[in-house]
Design a protein around this nucleic acid. Structure first.
Length: 363
DNA sequence: AAGGCGGGGCA
DNA sequence: TGCCCAGCCTT
């Protein structure tokens, strides 16, 4: 009852892979595949849906057709093309990775698992995915999709966040893996999780392995996987300054570590909830050391949810009497023409402000 | 082992 | 508005 027999494993593999070959999505990295396309797509699809990553994959393949092109690029160029996709450490690690592959692995992806793990941005999942999909090496992948599929197949109802549960799932993934077609099998597992065995309302009627699914048999599909509740996000409030002087606008670079590292933005002052509600009644000079020459223009309030922060923010357009501003939180900033603002890697919260600014200019 | 790190989408 | 999705890295 607790174990799949060799016959059942073989049947599972056959049914799954047959389903995959008939139902897989047409995706650009699946056309004329090579390891570089696999690598690029796997990095981009970490914590990211296919729909969201698709336009970025096309951009990167167009701009950097080979790993050498990627390695030879500037980091700011990579961040610019990546801006809006999030988790920007991926982009910076990708640049480091490309240089390492170029210099230490003769511009070829290493075939060894430990070597793959030594590359920045490549962990257990990505190493197994690239080695199996691009080189048909026998490594089982465990990503979010696979975790969900396996927890249902084996009716594992323990908290899926626990590392002990992940360990158990990894063992099951190795057990099910088809050693003859590891790449195909891994892709099929992930595609099943993405198309059929979805987090909400899984399409069990069209599942190729529903007869082997213990969650289905026990009518527990909606209870598995169990995930313990997430912590509440911290609420934060930002006042964003559109500082203007001589028809130029100030844009600043965030520090190289932490949230949105290395991305550009309009200078920000973090306020508490009370300050955020009342700043308009105060004098910007007294409160922020900013000397404005006239009335300010306020943007609508925006909300932006990060994985651990619930941010509310609002921009004010402020004309300065001189260009001396106290921006001690930033080590680099520039005064730019309006059009030049669009040439910098700006994170999404401030892209919304830029869009608002654009609507003022054109409207 | 736990927490930091984006952005999109849904009820 | 609250809350879901989730690999890699650092601590």
């Amino acid at each position: 009852m607790n174990k799949f027999s060799p016959g059942q494993i073989s049947e599972f593999q056959t049914r799954l892979v047959d389903w995959f070959q008939k139902n897989k999505r047409k995706l650009p990295w699946r056309e004329k595949p090579n390891w570089y396309k696999t690598y690029l797509s796997e990095i981009m699809l970490q914590q990211t849906t296919v729909e969201q990553g698709l336009p970025y994959f096309k951009k990167f393949i167009d701009n950097f057709p080979t790993i050498i092109d990627l390695a030879n690029s500037e980091e700011q160029r990579i961040l610019y093309l990546w801006s809006g996709l999030g988790y920007y450490a991926r982009a910076r690690n990708m640049h480091k990775a490309a240089k390492k592959i170029r210099d230490e692995f003769a511009a070829e992806f290493p075939r060894d698992y430990k070597d793959a793990l030594s590359i920045p941005g490549i962990g257990p999942y990505t190493a197994a995915a690239i080695l199996s999909i691009a080189f048909n090496k026998t490594h089982a992948v465990v990503d979010g999709n696979v975790s969900r599929v396996i927890s249902r197949i084996f009716a594992i109802s323990k908290d899926i966040r626990l590392s002990s549960t992940q360990k158990q799932i990894t063992e099951k993934a190795k057990l099910l893996l088809d050693p003859e077609n590891p790449g195909l099998f891994n892709e099929a597992m992930m595609e099943l999780g993405a198309l059929i065995c979805t987090p909400l309302k899984p399409d069990c009627n069209n599942c190729p392995v529903n007869l082997q699914c213990r969650a289905q048999a026990k009518n527990l599909v909606n209870e598995i996987p169990y995930k313990s509740p997430a912590k509440a996000k911290k609420k934060k409030f930002n006042l964003v300054f559109i500082l203007r002087f001589n028809n130029k606008i100030c844009l600043a670079k965030r520090p190289d570590t932490g949230l949105l590292a290395g991305m550009w933005e309009f200078p920000v002052k973090e306020l508490n909830a009370k300050q955020f509600e009342s700043f308009g009644e105060n004098n910007l000079d007294q409160n922020f050391g900013i000397i404005n020459t006239g009335p300010t223009v306020q943007s609508p309030k925006y909300r932006h949810q990060y994985s651990h922060i619930d941010l509310t923010y609002q921009a004010v357009i402020t004309d300065l009497r001189d260009s001396v501003v106290q921006l001690s939180d930033y080590y680099e900033y520039k005064w730019l023409n309006f059009a030049e603002l669009f040439d910098y890697p700006i994170h999404n919260a401030h892209k919304k402000i830029l869009e608002w600014l654009k609507s003022l200019v054109s409207g």
